[in-house]
Amino acid sequence: MQSLGSLVRVRHINCGTFRARIGGPALVSHVLVCEFEHGLVLVDSGLGTDDVAHATARLGAGFRLLLPALDSAETALDQLDRLGWTANDVTDVVLTHLDLDHAGGAADFPSATVHTTAVELKSAQTRSGIPAKVRYRPTHLAAIEHRSAGYVECSGELFGMAGHQLHDSVWMIPMPGHTAGHSVVAIRDPEHGWLLHAGDAFHHRRAVTGQRSGRSISMAEALFADDLKLLRTNQRRLADLSTTPGGPRVFCAHDPIQFRALIT
């Protein structure tokens, strides 16, 4: 990834709107488009074009319960096309984890290397248990099978946390709980400083402000957690980090308020 040169700009795009419950706020699938001198890197990928076109077959009937918008204009591929980029301009996709709403869009960028942890990759490939069969989709995994880099040994430390340095401006930091191999991704935005995309390490901004996130959010986090105790421990770590002077701006994948604050 070092051959990409310097990071020039970071864009924030929504690659999948859905409602977790009827009457609730519309949630987003927050994806970062990192523009380097010699290519693009995505952090997460949202839903892909085939996911939108063939939702039940690719995502499973259960995903319909989240009331997804399934709008092709929200896919990363379509949004990049409107910005003047092509699929081949995306050299790398860094995934916080391989859940269907985070990894599906990677299929639209067949020449890109997909980065995740070895633990997450193995969990997705084995699909052991009902939750794993729901969250990890065979079509998504087949699309990245021969172009995935699964990291084991951490190469350094950032913000007091061990992680994998992929570039001077890109770090992947293991933070399990939501899934066994979940990571957060740190990006050094040349304009705004360090950003920390926390994926599904939390689902509501209140997790890093010390406030109660509400019963429905807490129940959803518990329902989808691989290790709830570890998830809560890491949420406290992120809360501390978000208030550390000089620390990164911490945000999750689905909070619409955090997303709107970053795009403005």
Rank of each mutant, 00 (worst) to 15 (best):
Met1Leu: 10
Val10Asn: 04
Arg11Glu: 15
Phe18Ser: 12
Ala20Met: 13
Ala20Leu: 13
Arg21Trp: 15
Gly23Tyr: 08
Pro25Gln: 09
Leu27Lys: 12
Ser29Asn: 13
Phe36Tyr: 14
Leu40Pro: 01
Leu40Val: 10
Val43Ala: 01
Gly48Asn: 08
Asp51Glu: 09
Val52Gly: 06
Leu59Phe: 02
Gly60Glu: 13
Gly60Trp: 08
Gly62Phe: 09
Phe63Gly: 01
Leu66Asn: 13
Leu67Val: 10
Glu74Thr: 11
Ala76Lys: 11
Leu80Val: 14
Gly84Pro: 04
Trp85Ala: 12
Ala87Gln: 10
Asn88Asp: 15
Asn88Thr: 15
Asp89Thr: 12
Val93Gln: 09
Val94Thr: 10
Leu95Val: 12
His102Arg: 12
His102Ala: 15
Ala103Glu: 09
Ala106Val: 07
Asp108Gly: 13
Thr113Arg: 12
Thr117Cys: 06
Val119Gly: 02
Glu120Arg: 05
Gln125Arg: 15
Ala132Ser: 10
Lys133Glu: 13
Tyr136Phe: 15
Ala142Asn: 11
Ala143Gln: 05
His146Pro: 00
Arg147Gln: 06
Gly150Glu: 05
Ser155Met: 06
Gly160Gln: 07
Trp171Asn: 06
Met172Thr: 13
Ile173Met: 08
Ile173Cys: 06
Pro176Phe: 11
His178Gln: 06
Gly181Glu: 04
His182Val: 07
Ile187Glu: 00
Ile187Asp: 01
Asp189Ser: 07
Trp194Val: 04
Leu196Phe: 00
Gly199Glu: 02
Asp200Asn: 07
Phe202Gly: 00
Arg205Asn: 00
Arg205Met: 01
Val208Gln: 00
Val208Lys: 01
Gly210Leu: 08
Gly214Asp: 10
Ser218Val: 13
Ala225Ser: 15
Leu228Gln: 11
Leu230Tyr: 05
Thr233Arg: 12
Asn234Thr: 05
Gln235Pro: 00
Gln235Phe: 02
Leu238Asp: 04
Asp240Thr: 11
Asp240Val: 09
Leu241Ser: 04
Gly246Asn: 09
Arg249Asn: 02
Val250Lys: 01
Val250Trp: 00
Phe251Thr: 03
Ile263Gln: 05
